[in-house]
Amino acid sequence: MAHQRGAASSDAVKEPHSISLKVLRLSRPSLSIQHPLPLPTPSPSPSQSPGTHPTPSASLAYPSTKHDTFILSPLLTLPPAFGSAYVGETFSCTLCANNEILAGSSAAKTVANVRIEAEMKIPSSKVPMLLTLGPEVERVDTDTEVMEDEKRYGHGVDLAPGRSLQKVINFDLKEEGSHVLAVTVTYSETTATSGKVRTFRKLYQFVCKGCMVVRTKTGPLPSSCKGGKWALEAQLENCGEETITLDSVILEARKGFKSHGINWEVLREGEGVERPVLMPGDVQQVCFLVEEILGPDEREQEPVDGRLIFGILSLGWRGTMGNRGFLSTGDLGAKVTS
C-alpha cells in the first residue's frame, strides 16, 4: 500500500493552501463483475408474469438489453485500491492539482501558474529521479497555439476555482524495496493586496515486490561436432499475488552461442499458441538448447572465471487486464570442467 508521508511544507505560511494535490494509481481498469439472476425458463409472458421476479436487468452491471449470464461484463471500473507493485511492471499514477478556492468566497484570491513536479526515490540511489509528466504536449497547428502550449505545459497553468490540472506519470519498477514518489506543487497566489509564490511537497511511499523468481540449471549434452552443447533449464515461479500469463521467454544468446527454446512456442501443425498461465505459487519449467558456434579456426569460446557465458534470459508476462511485466536475468552459463 502507498502511505502518504507527512506533508513537508517548504514555506512557513500557516495559511491553508489554495491548491490540493490528489493522486490515484492508474493500474489497468478492470472488467465489472456481475451476478445475473437466473430467470424462469420458459420465460413467462408479460401478462401472466407472477410478479415475483425482479427486472432482469437489475442484476446486470449496466442496463443492457441482452441478458448475458456471464460473470464478466465489458464495462470498465477504475482501480479501487493501490494494489501491489511488482518489479518488472510499469507504475502509472495520475496527479491532480486542484484549485480549492470556493467560487464566490469572500477573500478574493486567484491562483495562477500552477506547476507539478514529480520525482521517484528508488532503493539503490540516494538521488531521486525526475519523472516526465504526461500527457505529451498536444499537436499544435499555429504559432499562437505553440505559445499557448508553452504557457500551459512549460510555465504552469492558471486554474479557475474548482478546476484541476491533471498529469500522468509512468515509471518502470526495477528494484525491490521501498519507493517514494515525491510530488511538488508550485503556484502563485494573488489577493487584492499581495501576491506570492507558494509551494508544497507530498511524499507517497510504497513497497515494490518481486513477482517472478527464476532458477536456472545448465547441463552438458552429448555433442557430435566439436563445439559444446548444453541444455539450459529454468523454473519460473509466480511469487506475486496475481495470476499472470507468460508472454515470451527468450534466451538472448551472446556472440559465439546460439539457442533455441523447446517450449510452448514449438507447435505441431494446426495447433495454436497456448501461453502458460501461472496462478500465485505456480511454477513453469522452460528449457533451451544452447550450442557453441566455433570461431573461424575452430576455436572454442573462452571461459571467463571458469565459466562460459551463454547470455541472459528475458521474460515478458501480462497480468490482469494485460498489465505488462518484463524481467531479465543476469548472465547465465555453464562451468567449464577441465
Binding site: N98, E100, S164
Partner: peptide, 23 residues
C-alpha cells in the same frame, strides 16, 4: 435520453470526485 445509475458509474464518478478536490 434515459439516466443511468449503475454501480460502476457512481463508483467511477466518486473516484474522479476524490481526485478533483479535497472536499
Amino acid at each position: 435520453e434515459p439516466s443511468s445509475t449503475f454501480h460502476a458509474l457512481t463508483f467511477n464518478l466518486s473516484t474522479i470526485y476524490e481526485l478533483c478536490t479535497e472536499r
